[in-house]
Structures are given as C-alpha cells and as structure tokens.
Amino acid sequence: MIELQALTKTYGGRPVVDEVSARFARGTLTAIVGSSGSGKTTLLRMINRLVEPTSGRVLIDGQDAGRIPEVSLRQGIGYVIQGYGLFPHWTAARNIGVVPTLLGWPEARIAARVTELLQMLQLDPAEIAGRYPHQLSGGQAQRIGVARALAARPDVLLMDEPFGALDPLIRRQAQRDLAQIRRQLGTTIVLVTHDMNEALYLGDAIAVMRHGRFEQFDTPDRIIRAPATAFVADLVGETGRALRLLALHPVGSLSRAGEAEGEPVDVAASLSDALAEMIWTGRDRLPVTDAQGQRLGIVTREDILARGRE
C-alpha cells in the first residue's frame, strides 16, 4: 500500500503538488489523470524520490520512503517513462537485467528472469534478447521498458505516460496487455496519463489532478456517474456517458441462464461491446461463453440498457 500524507512540492515558492493525501491500495492500479503542468509527474516522482518532497511524506507499506536510502528504495520500485529511456548501448536483455544486476543476482538467475519476462510480454527471447534499442519497434521497446521495470519483482510499479509514444493501434494493444499481466502480478501500480479513456480502461481508482491537487479520487464508475467538479465532468465528457459506464463492466456481471442464437460474446468483453454487437447484428440477446468456448448463459439488451440508466 502507498500512502501520501500532505505531500507537497514547491518550486520557487509556487506549489506544484499541494498537500495531497491519498491511499493507493495494495495490488490496485491507480490512474492519475491531468493535463500537463497539473503536477502529476512530480507527484509520481516523489514516490521513488526522483523528486524530494518539500513537505509531507510517502509511506510504502507503512515505511517512510524518506528514510529508505534512495538507491535501495528505487531498486525496489519499478519505473516506466514515456520514451522508455532504454540504455541505447545495451541489448534488450541487458536493459531488462539492469536492476537484478545492481542487486547482485547470479547471472543464471538474471538470464532466466529475462527469458521469463520476454515470454510473459509475448516477445520471442531468441529474436529480441540480443537486439539493441534502435533495432526495436516502438511496441517492442515499450514492452522492454515494462519488462525492465518488473525485472526484480517490485511491489510497486510507477508508470509515467507509458503508452504516450505509441501510435493509436499499438497503444490499444499495449493497454490490453497491461490489463492482462497486472492480474498475474499483484503489483501496486500508479499510472500517470493525460488520457481519461486510458484511465477509465485500466484504473481501479482514478485521481483527477489539477493545479497540484486531487479534484476527485474515486472509482471509475463514480467518476463517470458523479463527477465532483465541472473540470472532472469536462474531462469525462457530457456525451456518451452511459456508453462509457457500460464499457467499465464485463458481460459476466449481467450473465443469466437462457438460450440465444448466433455468434457468442466473451464473458470478459465489456457491456458496451455486447450492445454494439446486438445493434449491428439486429439481435436482442447474445450467448455468453468463457475463454475456452464453454457456454455460460446469455446477456440481454434490456439488462444492459437498465444497467446504463442506473
């Protein structure tokens, strides 16, 4: 768990982060959304002390981060930045292995960990491990950046616009991959983004940041349903609110017993995807299957519409 206590950073007397207090629960992904200059990156960097707080504290699992030696604190926290900052003179494998090397892991263990991470991120170790950063595509470089941050199994992962440098198509895929792997990891993730859609898609909790303060810190559902300020409402957007809400929930949450015709929908797909499918194929009920293709039941249009009006 990460706890921020009245965390403040001022530059030349001007507060960039202004007495922010919050708790990010263990194993959750908190997305911090804000425009540039809102203080979100500064906030993130105070967690691994790349920026020293002017006042206030960061507690990680109850321990004051300010009292942990900088170097060991950072070795225990994964960090992914926009543009990834891969070391251009090292191969992908050496980039991934940097923190384990700093920690003095034996070579065989590092090699095994590198292979494991590449496989988890769906990269072929034989092909990718020996490549230098300039030989990687944008998507590959992004995944190497994530693998490097995860290499020493950190309890906390900080991500600063990790998808910002990707083109939209690959970005979608990378977001999906992150959603997938974080379930396997159980790591506490704090992700900074300016993209509300990304935050809604990935976040268990969302903090909307403006002028160095949290305007609202809430679940995605509440952010859409009950924006605390005009600024939050503006970010979420007035139109399409119901569809956004539906996008947050999986088909599984409304699955019921019954029979339906035609192409089935995956239990993990969102309700908005299911609705779109109904409109497109002219059906009012869809069969629901799990990942193995096993029939689980059906989902109906009435149920989805009712959920969207809640």
Binding site: G85, L86, V98, L102
Partner: peptide, 27 residues
C-alpha cells in the same frame, strides 16, 4: 546523453557513480 536515459538510470537505483561509469561514459 538523453535526459530520459539518465532519468532511467537514476530511477533504476543506480548511484551517480554507476550512472557515470555504466551509462554516460560508454555513450
């Protein structure tokens, strides 16, 4: 040496001396 690379080195928990010897000088 790109700022993002220096920042990564620091964020990975390298000491200033390690950043100099392992990142800046080779580059």
């Amino acid at each position: 040496v790109p700022g993002s690379v220096l920042l990564s080195g620091k964020a990975m928990g390298m000491t200033p001396r390690q950043v100099l010897a392992q990142v800046e000088m080779p580059l």
